[in-house]
Design a protein around this nucleic acid. Sequence first.
RNA 1: CGAGAUGUGGCUCAAUUUGGUAGAGCACUUGGUUUGGGACCAAGGGGUUGCAGGUUCAAAUCCUGUCAUCUCGACCA
Length: 565
Amino acid sequence: MRISNSYFYTLREDAKDEESKSGNLLVRSGMIKKVGAGIYMYLPLGYRVLDKIKNIIKEEMDKTGAQELLMPSLIPSEYYEKCGRVEAFGDNMFNLRDRKNAHMVLGPTHEELFAIAASMYLKSYKNLPFNIYQQADKFRDEMRPRYGLVRVKEFIMKDAYTFDRDEKMQDSSYKKMYDAYCNIFNRMGIDYKIVRASVGAMGGTLSEEYQALTDIGEDILVLCDKCDYASNMEVANFKIEEEEEEEKTLEEVNTPNAHTIEDVCNYLKLDIKHTVKALLMHVDGKLTIFFIRGDRELNEEKALKAVGGKEIGFANDEQIAESNAYPGFTGPINLSGCKIVVDNEVLKMKNFCCGANKEDYHYINANVKDINYDLAADISNVVEGDVCPKCGGKLYFKHGIEIGNLFKLGDHYCRDLGITYLDENNKEQYPLMGSYGIGPGRILASIVEQNNDEHGMILPINIAPYQVALVQIDMNNKEQTEVAESIYEELTNAGIEVIYDDREERPGVKFKDMDLVGIPIRVTVGKKISDNLVEFKLRSEAEAEDIQLSDITNKIKEYIKDNLK
RNA sequence: CGAGAUGUGGCUCAAUUUGGUAGAGCACUUGGUUUGGGACCAAGGGGUUGCAGGUUCAAAUCCUGUCAUCUCGACCA
């Protein structure tokens, strides 16, 4: 491409409405432009990059035997009602009415339609297994879009769906996707971790996520410093260490105005790890009090699961009044009028401090024998330094952007939709379904987030919009023009993607722009041409190299051959 | 949805406190001088100050409402 008569622009300053590095670089390089919160246009340069990402995904998906198709985005809502997902998605789904006032949605994910597509083909056990996928727009009315392309309201997702007969067959289908995803992200040079995750609104039995490691990642990954344990915080656990301490006698102590755990610890000079705090919650409107170690957070998802509820939130005064709990001084001793859930860890604690259910009083030296509760379960979040549940190593945290996920969904979608096949005994069976997502936009954001310097982005050669930036220093120099044109022609004929900066701009402008956009290879045709030399520079390296003009195209071809994954 | 901040040429910002004809840099156009890391000089074009009301002789500025964007929180495949 010749820049001089192409759509190409860059911005010299950061956008004021972009916070993240990747968001800013993508906007400044003219790859994307914000239309509204969480809504972006992909401009020609950005679209080329997106297309390359999609192509790598497509290649690896097709290699597994998956077949591509295309689903609509505008879907009658009845399809989502059948599986109870109108409720599951709630306000996250875009709802609209057509002219006949029929209720429509913009698809947030496509399990239902894929199941229906599957049913058109699937009649016999002989049809299994198979895998169908698409790369198409998804719409989710996110409460808070942020970080450029990381969390948006409309985005392209590659979503694949497998259909299998039994768990063994599904394991094999799942493994194929697992491996394909590794290939995809490895080819793109992304630094990622595969973590165990929650099945969330998808429902199902197993979920793993591919998480690109970056500081702006919204997910917290729990990793072990000794083994390969890796889990999303939402489902991470830790090994509870039993305290070896002799049980002392329960004692009530005055703690004036000590409403928070910090206050109590300061006042009584206690280690926060020897305290138990209360979380006064409502589960489906009913007061439920959770007790966890003072320094931990309640994991609401685990808590809900433990009590078998649907909705959880902080209790209001009215709900609290049903019990004898005293906010700020609530403890699991002589507590009544509510459901009481204690963290498994609390059962192993010795001589801890907790509220006494009356103003300005706490208990010290409390032990399991002193407390009353309805249920004990794992309800708290891991903190850094906890013991790995797998090997006993130390757990630490990293932030990740979820760029891919794998779900074993079981058969509930097919059950709800009545999709069956006949087995060899002429008996109707429900197939097992799996769903597998990848977010190309998030991949782009993650790559830029992981690969940049003060000059701009540094893109891998199979992702960059062009492989080679050809910079001619002096557009009025005939010899330079001749050489640049011939290099352009030769590389282009060899199938190499060249962006030829033939603008009447000063060299500095051209260098800055090519650096900002992150083109991996730069060839500069300048004054050294009188010695038959041109300059070869990698975006990732600081130094340039002078190359004989006669060698330059071969050098580039070889570099690309060696580095194109 | 709760709290805070911000909306002024394409971009980044000033003028708002104290009401008085809307300004700079970048970008753009023309001419000239330059030409290896975002050049310089000169002359231009481009904004009913997010929108709607109100107060006033006069509103970017004050008041009310509304919308949008960003941040923190809540929420979250």
